[in-house]
Design a protein around this nucleic acid. Structure first.
Lengths: 137, 137
DNA sequence: CTCTATGCAAAATATTTGCAAGGGA
DNA sequence: TCCCTTGCAAATATTTTGCATAGAG
């Protein structure tokens, strides 16, 4: 499963814009980490991202990967997908959607949200920031 | 938020039945661990469960808690609720339902699934075992 | 030039495993 | 009796932090 060229460009541009907005230096390592997540539908976990980036930057530190993931999350560039019993995976698709977790195969799929699913705006007096419907296969 | 006496009895009976079915000895520690999860809507995480059980069994080991949680999960007695950025929480409510995660308050609420939400039986040729709709507040 | 990011190492946290002894069925 | 469970300690795995240096804006 690959993403369209157009979708990828959009994600990367969004990434660069956000970085500029926040006056954050745009290093090659950061770009590589973001691309490792954004350039496919693989929903990699930390060590997969680390391995991937390592092939381009053999000196990259795992701490750098962790630090950047945290930063990207706080900027709203990526979303963490927690998976029961395994390390979290990361997703750069920003539209609200669902996930199918196939633990046996160690994979996470993207799914459109069903038409029928209308999300509440508020719960317990608090704004619903995000919603994630996870199917376990 | 507390659960009804009836619901609790049901959960505990289910727990005892399952243990007997599987020919697993029913130790006081196991019961205490299960009850720590089943007797409220608190969705405790591992260390909260550990602290709770420790008050009754000061010698209990954290490893015992972990081992039993894994066992309970594989028996279908509890469900792990992964929470982004924090350790997982555990739920003994077995009906399919949703969760609202309030990270700021460190709480997870149970929610009925909306009527409108009809879950697919299969995805990608695999049976949907469980589905979890998580709202982030 | 200034400020953040990087890489390294160490610390902190979380989880799993091996094994001897104890206790339920 | 048999086998699972417990508790302890050690091993692994995961994530965070501090600090000196390098590099982006």
């Amino acid at each position: 499963m690959t993403i369209t060229q157009q979708e990828l460009s959009q994600r990367l541009e969004n990434f660069r814009n956000k970085s500029r907005q926040e006056h954050l230096p745009l290093t090659p390592q950061k770009s590589a980490i973001f691309q490792a997540i954004a350039s496919s539908c693989e929903h990699p976990n930390v060590s997969e991202i680390y391995q991937q980036v390592k092939s381009e930057f053999p000196n990259i530190s795992l701490a750098t990967v962790y630090n950047n993931l945290k930063k990207f999350e706080s900027l709203g560039l990526i979303v963490e997908i927690p998976v029961p019993g395994e390390p979290s995976r990361y997703d750069a698709k920003l539209e609200i959607h669902s996930h199918a977790v196939d633990s046996a195969a160690g994979r996470v799929y993207d799914l459109e949200n069903p038409q029928s699913l209308s999300l509440p705006k508020k719960l317990f007096g608090k704004t619903v920031k995000h919603a994630n419907l996870i199917y376990y296969l």
